[in-house]
C-alpha cells in the first residue's frame, strides 16, 4: 500500500522569509500523525502545502498517490479526496448547516438532493449534531461549529483528513467535544494529519508525533518517545513550556 502523503525536500518561502527549510515526511494510510511545535515553526504551512493551499517553493509532495506539486495535476479532483478542518471553522455563514454539508456534494460530486441530504444527516449524526441540521452557523457554539466543519469534510468521503489547529480557537470547555469526534474518527481508521497544541490528545491518539521548530522537523517518533522522553533539547524545552506554562515546579508552588 502506498503512503497517503509523501513530502520530499519541501521548501516554502514567503518573500525573503523561509518558513519551511527542507521537510521530508511520509504518512502511511490509516496512520494518525500529530505535528507539534512552537508558533511560527511552519507546521500550519506544511499542512497547507499538502493540499496546495500554499504553493511550495521547492520540493515534491505526493498526496494520495498524486503528485500535487505537478502543475498539471487535477487539483480539484484530488482535493475532493482530502478533507480539511481549519482553526477558524470557516463554515459558510450564509448557508444552513444542511446546506453547508450538501453544497459541495451537489456542485462538485453532482449527487442528487436526496442522496446529499442522507449523507449530510449521517455525517451530522457521527459528530452528534443531527438536531442542528436547520441552524445557521452563527447560532452554534464554537465547538458545535467545528464539529459541523468536520462533518462537512466527512460528507465528501475523504481518504485523508488534515486538521489545522482545530481546537485553538475554542473556549477551553468546548475542546473536549471536538477532540472526542477526532478520536472516534481515528479509531475508525481514517488517515489523519493533525497540527495541534493538545499534547494529551497527541499522546493518546497519534501513531506518531512530529516536532517542528524553525521550519525543519527536529524529531519524530511514537508519542511515548517524543512526548515523554524526547531526544532533542529543543523538544524538551518546548514541552516544558507547553506543559508547565507558569514555569513553577510543584515544590515551588507548595513552598510559595
Amino acid at each position: 500500500m502506498t503512503d497517503a502523503v509523501v513530502v520530499e525536500g519541501l521548501v516554502k518561502s514567503f518573500g525573503a522569509t523561509e518558513v519551511l527549510r527542507g521537510i521530508d515526511l511520509s504518512v502511511a494510510a490509516g496512520e494518525v500523525v500529530c505535528v507539534i511545535g512552537p508558533s511560527g515553526s511552519g507546521k500550519s504551512t506544511l499542512l497547507r502545502c499538502i493540499n496546495l493551499l500554499e504553493t511550495p517553493s521547492a520540493g515534491r509532495i505526493c498526496t494520495l498517490g498524486v503528485e500535487i506539486t505537478d502543475p498539471d495535476c487535477e487539483l480539484d479532483a484530488l482535493r475532493r479526496r482530502i478533507g480539511m478542518v481549519f482553526q477558524q471553522f470557516n463554515l459558510f455563514g450564509h448557508l444552513t448547516v444542511r446546506r453547508n454539508l450538501t453544497v459541495a456534494q451537489r456542485r462538485v460530486l453532482h449527487r442528487g438532493r436526496a442522496e446529499a441530504d442522507r449523507v449530510a444527516t449521517d455525517a451530522l449524526a457521527r459528530v452528534g449534531l443531527a438536531d442542528k441540521v436547520d441552524a445557521y452557523p452563527a447560532h452554534l457554539s464554537g465547538g458545535q461549529q467545528q464539529r459541523v466543519a468536520i462533518a462537512r469534510a466527512l460528507a465528501m468521503g475523504p481518504e485523508l483528513m488534515l486538521f489545522d489547529e482545530p481546537t485553538s480557537a475554542l473556549d477551553p470547555e468546548l475542546v473536549g467535544e471536538v477532540l472526542t469526534v477526532m478520536r472516534e474518527l481515528a479509531e475508525g481508521g481514517m488517515t489523519m494529519l493533525v497540527v495541534t497544541h493538545e499534547m494529551a490528545f497527541a499522546r493518546q491518539v497519534a501513531d506518531r508525533v512530529v516536532f517542528m521548530d524553525g521550519g525543519v522537523i527536529v524529531e519524530s517518533g511514537p508519542p511515548d518517545e517524543v512526548l515523554v522522553a524526547p531526544r532533542e533539547e529543543r523538544t524538551r524545552a518546548f514541552l516544558h513550556r507547553v506543559l508547565d506554562p507558569t514555569g513553577l515546579t510543584e515544590a515551588e508552588l507548595e513552598g510559595g
Partner: peptide, 27 residues
C-alpha cells in the same frame, strides 16, 4: 468576505469559479 471562506470551498474540491459563485459572491 474572509479568505477562509474561499479556502474552505476550494478544499471541498470546488473550482475557483464555483467557489466564487456559490460561496463568496452571495456573502
Amino acid at each position: 468576505v474572509p479568505r477562509g471562506q474561499l479556502e474552505a470551498a476550494r478544499t471541498l474540491g470546488m473550482s475557483y469559479t464555483r467557489a466564487m459563485v456559490s460561496i463568496v459572491i452571495p456573502q
